[in-house]
Structures are given as structure tokens and as C-alpha cells.
Design a protein around this nucleic acid. Structure first.
Lengths: 338, 338
DNA sequence: TTGAAAGCGATACCAT
DNA sequence: ATGGTATCGCTTTCAA
């Protein structure tokens, strides 16, 4: 392994000079600069992350996590994974701030971002898809803050990284699952959080793609539950009453899964094929009981881990991510492999 | 964050002494030892991994990877993941030796282990389940070598760690998948590598458990292909000829998947539900074409990564794994979420 | 513009 | 048994 010291010796300069060149700190004569760069390239110099991390102790890097999703159970796993990672990275001197708010309030999210701005070096955010949030994020990025969006991306934000799932593919996978397991004739009721949420909309599109062209399948109704179990319960009940032909229920977001399953169970004389997203505890329970047949799983823990790792690697080890998007697979989970 | 230096100052001893205490190197008077331990506990001392990693450079840690599986395609992904990890850890000064041999030769594996013994600090091995190999591994462990078994565990080996999948659960998942997607009447032909391979046997047991008690399901025949496509092809062909009622083919190991699918395709007048393990390239291809309906995926890349991480964390950061077994989920993959 | 030196945290080694 | 010192690779700071 090549070290800065070796390069310095070979070039006949000091370690300080090599450091200045390799980190573009300026104040180096052009020819020396060239010489060092050549040598580094020739020897395939790669900085030792342990050395970097140790030296980084002096600057005390800070990361902030911003999630507008307190109370949405899906995020519990994701948050837990991030907390574990944060604890680990604390040993390396990186601190993490938590800003978990409840509800998708644009003003609130902007306010938090503004407040963070002078205090942190990186932000992991589940952004509300709104232009004002995008603007604020662009401000942060201009200030040199490293931004990672998680679980949902946002448009119109320049240089940032995304960790999450492919929503269209998730919907498509769900559709394929229906084709594989479902009745030959399907009258489908769909429940999702909100059509205003990009991810949910994309899942719906993917699902429709997957079942397009099957004449014996029809989507009877699409209802929104705002990821709320009570709303999901009453709206599903109404839908089932109005449409006695429905024999398949698809939940495209996990917030209301439990509520709509309860409504399905209340229709005691009917049976349904029920497919949902995410394996939150209530869902696992209903899978064990045979109420829900399958779930599409979007690796929440991996998402949390990866986002934290990107931030850590950047702040502490100076490693730039090798991709702009890290997409987790949509897995199929049934009772046996949950 | 608390450092060794701080503890040393507070206890009125030198850093060397603190180091000796915290790492059980002996040669410390009992009372000083107690004092240091108390103080470390009180201040919640946790070693800084960056410091450890840097200091570890001096001992030049070496890991060896021993796989008797050259030519088995499933291991390609696993090996690639390990190579990537190895490259990354090389930056920290950990070296990796590769011993990829072909075929399950006990003598050969023992010979390699003996040869490694004086050169390495850790071994990642896909062990042949034989008592002589177990003995050799126990020898290494006695010498203080850190041992991780990967993808297959071995019995009678004392202090070691396992990274792999739950084979019984894999078989059970496969069985559930059949129940979900298959015809109401199933005449099942099973192909697997070898009944002498513990993993394959366990999968078979799991599968049988899952479909037990379904009168309309029957296992017609179980054949062994030794993970060889040619053997799989001819044996499957013979089986299909002898049993015209077979309408489901289950491949419990990926080595011969392609061969047996080819045999199924040759029986042009019949159609089969085909389920396999692992998404190796030939399998993905056949899934796209609709020949194979689903595969159970055992996260080969994660397995490789995790095994390398355990070794790195132990050798370089002095971290002891928090579990003895790291079990990957058995995922269900279909054309849409492959 | 450059070099020399100190320091980040942990460890190995040599004296004592 | 214990302390002191040098070292791992990198960054920062101070002096020239």
C-alpha cells in the first residue's frame, strides 16, 4: 500500500505538500503539483481510511436525519437501523442529530432545514415533494452540505444521492404476484395512502402495467386512506359493501393495511386474496393467521444502513459515492419466509 | 469520547498498562487492573476503531478464503462480493489469500488448511462436512486463527462463526411457493446435487414438511445430479420419460438447473411448473422466457460481504461478532423482481 | 510556496 | 510489573 510519506520521499517534497496537492488545498507550484499527481497515479495511491478517520477527529463531523414520519410504522425499522449505525459511527467521532416530526408539513420541514444549515455537514432526509423543500435543499448543497434522500426522492434538487426502492417495479411485482397466486377472475379493490404521494402513484402505475391486457381482471375502485388505519377501515368497509364482487384487496402502502384487513374480516361471508406492502408487525401477524397472503418488502433496514454509510464514508473517509442512486430490491414475502 | 490516554491519566498509570488491562495481555498487578477496569466501565470506554485499524497495520493481518467450488456458478456472485470487500479492506492493510479449488476433495482441503496455518490470522471456508476437515479447523482455532464458515456449516468444530442460509426454511419456502402457484394436483419430480450434501438434504426435508398432508401432491422421484448440467439433463430426461404424470419440477440446488430445464423443454408436448434455487445467469434467462416460474434466492452477495466484514472487524478493529450465526433470508424471486 | 512538527487513538517494544 | 517512546497514515498549524 502506498502512503503519502512514500510519495513525498519519491518526489523529494514534504508530506505537507503532497497533502496539499491531493486535497486541492492550493499553494503548490504547478510543476511540483504535476509531479505529485503523476506519482500518485503511477503508484495507484489510495488514502488509508483509518488515517483519515483518525485525523478527522479534530473536525467533529455532524449529520442530521430529517423524517416527517413519526407514527408511520414502516419507518420504525428504518429509524432503528439508522440509530444503530449512528451509534457505531459515534465511535469514530461522527455525531447525529435527529429531527423526526409528525405529518407532511412543508413549512415545518423547511424551518428545520434552515435551522440545521449552520450546524451540520450532512443531511439524510425523507423529503416532502414540494418546490420549497427543493429550494432549501439546493441552498444546503450550495453551502457544501452533503444531502442524501431516503425512501422517497425529490425532483429539482441538484447534486444529491438517493437511497430507496423502485416504486414502479414494486407495483409491477405486486401485479405479477396477483397473476401467480390469484383467482382466474379478479375484481380488485386498491387502497393506498394518497395519490399525491409520488411513490404510491408510481406503485399504482406499475400495478396497472402488470395486469394490463388480462380481460378477466378489473380494478373496481381505488381509495385513499392517508396512511391511517381508521380511515382505511371505514373506507374499505364502504367499498366492500358497495361492490360485493370484489375478491382481491391490494394495499399499496402499509399505513392502513391493518384497518382495511379488519374491514375485510368483518365481511365474514366473503374471502379475499389480500396483498400488501411492507412487513410491519401487524402485517406479520395477519400473515401468520392467513389473512394476508403475501407482502412486498422494500428492505427498510438496508435503506437506513446504506444512507448512514454514505454519509459516514463521505464525512469521515472522504469517499464520494460511486452512484447517485442506491435502489433496493422489492422482495416477495409470504408466511414461510417472512 | 473516552480514550486510553484519559483513562491512564485518571488512574495514574501509563497508557501501556491500560492497554494491557483492556486487552487481557496480563502482566498487570491485580489492584491496578481492577482500578482501570472500573474506570473504563464508569466512563463507558469504547475503543476507537480508526485508532485500532491504524495500529493493526503493524501486524499485517492476513485472511484466507478456502472454497472447494470452482465451476459452481452459484459461488461466482459470492466470490465477487468477497473480492470487492477484500479490495476495500486492502486499503486498511488487511491482505486476502485465495484458495479456490475444484471438487469436494477432503484431502485437498485438509492439505490447504495445513499449508495456511502458519501464514494467516483468519480463514473463511466453505467446509466439506467431514471429520478430518473438522479436526484441522479445530487445530487452526487452537492456534488462535479466526474461523468463519460460509454457505455451509460443519459439525464438531468448536469456536467459530457461520454465515449462510437456513436450508430447511429454504425448502419450506419452496414448498409454500408450490402451494401458492402450483396446480391443484401435483406430481413432483425433484432434482438435487447430492443427498450427501447436508444443505441439499435439509432443503428436501423442509420441502417435504411444507407439502405434507396434501393428498393431491405426491413426490414421484428424487434424483441426484452432482451439480452437473449434463447429468441433470440426462437423468431428468429419463425421469420424465418414465413418469409421464410429472407436472412439477423442483430443483433444490442450482448446479444442474439448466440441464434439467433443457430436458423439460425437450418434452415439447408437456408443460411444467419449474421452481429452482438461486438466480444464476442461466436461471435468469429461463425465467425471462417463462420456463422457470420462480426461484428462491439466498443472498450470495450479502453472504460474501458479511463473512469478509466479520473477519475484518475482528482482525483490524478487534471486534468480536455479536452472534455465532448470521442467517440470510430465503427470498422469492420471479421474473418481475429478479 | 514549502517544510517541519505535533497530534488523532491504539499498540508494540524496549528499558527498567 | 510498569513506563516511555516510536509508530501506523493523514491533517493541521506554525515558521520560514
Amino acid at each position: 500500500m502506498v502512503t503519502i510519506k512514500q510519495i513525498a520521499d519519491l518526489c523529494g517534497v514534504s508530506r505537507g505538500t503532497v497533502d496539499r496537492v491531493l486535497n486541492n488545498r492550493g499553494n503548490v507550484k504547478a510543476e511540483k503539483r504535476e509531479l505529485v499527481l503523476q506519482m500518485a497515479k503511477k503508484l495507484k495511491y489510495k488514502p488509508n481510511p483509518a488515517g483519515k478517520a483518525l485525523a478527522a477527529r479534530k473536525i467533529n463531523p455532524v449529520a442530521a436525519v430529517v423524517l416527517p414520519s413519526a407514527g408511520i410504522v414502516f419507518f420504525d425499522d428504518l429509524i432503528r437501523a439508522m440509530e444503530n449505525a449512528a451509534k457505531k459511527y459515534e465511535d469514530y467521532g461522527m455525531h447525529t442529530q435527529w429531527h423526526i416530526m409528525k405529518g407532511y408539513d412543508v413549512d415545518e420541514q423547511c424551518r428545520i432545514l434552515e435551522e440545521l444549515r449552520p450546524q451540520v455537514n450532512a443531511v439524510i432526509i425523507n423529503p416532502i415533494n414540494d418546490s420549497r423543500v427543493a429550494e432549501k435543499l439546493n441552498d444546503l448543497i450550495r453551502d457544501g452540505i452533503f444531502v442524501v434522500t431516503i425512501n422517497n426522492d425529490i425532483e429539482q434538487v441538484h447534486q444529491h444521492y438517493y437511497v430507496g426502492s423502485d416504486y414502479v417495479n414494486g407495483g409491477r411485482t405486486m401485479g405479477a404476484l396477483l397473476k401467480m397466486t390469484g383467482p382466474s377472475e379478479a375484481h380488485i379493490g386498491i387502497i393506498l395512502g394518497s395519490l399525491k404521494m409520488l411513490g404510491h402513484l408510481h406503485r399504482l402505475q406499475g400495478f396497472k402495467q402488470a395486469i394490463a391486457g388480462i380481460p378477466s381482471y378489473s380494478i373496481v375502485q381505488v381509495i385513499e386512506d392517508n396512511d391511517d388505519n381508521i380511515a382505511a377501515f371505514s373506507k374499505t368497509r364502504d367499498m366492500l359493501a358497495a361492490h360485493p364482487e370484489i375478491n382481491v384487496l391490494i394495499n399499496l402502502s402499509s399505513g392502513g393495511s391493518y384497518g382495511s384487513c379488519r374491514a375485510a374480516l368483518d365481511a365474514a361471508d366473503r374471502t379475499f386474496l389480500i396483498l400488501v406492502f411492507d412487513t410491519i408487525p401487524t402485517t406479520r401477524n395477519l400473515m401468520k393467521k392467513g389473512v394476508i397472503q403475501a407482502a412486498v418488502y422494500q428492505h427498510p433496514r438496508q435503506q437506513g444502513q446504506k444512507a448512514m454509510l454514505l454519509v459516514f464514508d463521505y464525512l469521515v473517509n472522504g469517499i464520494i459515492p460511486d452512484r447517485e442512486q442506491y435502489i433496493m430490491n422489492n422482495e416477495i414475502r409470504i408466511r414461510e419466509n417472512i
